[in-house]
């Protein structure tokens, strides 16, 4: 996926690796493919998701496909209007 590394990402994700159960749905769903499951295990024996590269758009898809309420927080660059996905 092409990505201009000179510009800051439009979005950012905060991943709570202790809440993640490593189901991989977010990895599958992420349009810019910036997520993958880590090689290491978390306290509960799951491979938690990590954001391994630039290019997050802040679209929020990972948040919605994730079954855990608090495992993912999606942020957007302030310049971008936060919009509801239900619009």
């Amino acid at each position: 996926m092409s990505h201009d590394r000179s510009k800051p990402d439009r979005g950012r994700v905060e991943l709570n690796s202790e809440e993640c159960k490593g189901c991989g749905l977010c990895v599958e769903a992420c349009p810019p493919k910036v997520l993958r499951l880590a090689g290491h295990l978390n306290r509960y024996g799951y491979h938690p998701v990590t954001c391994f590269t630039h290019g997050c758009t802040g679209c929020g898809i990972c948040f919605f496909v994730c079954p855990e309420p608090g495992a993912i927080i999606v942020l957007r660059a302030t310049a971008l209007e936060a919009e509801t996905l239900y619009a």
Binding site: N16, E18, E19, K21, G22, C23, G24, L25, Y44, Y46, F64, V65, C66, P67, E68, P69, G70, A71
Partner: peptide, 21 residues
């Protein structure tokens, strides 16, 4: 484990819970 749900990895319940919330 008071910071994660009791549901299995990839379970749909958690997703629907989030939609409701």
């Amino acid at each position: 484990l008071q910071h994660q749900t009791h549901y299995c990895p990839g379970c749909g319940h958690g997703i629907v819970h989030k939609l409701i919330a």
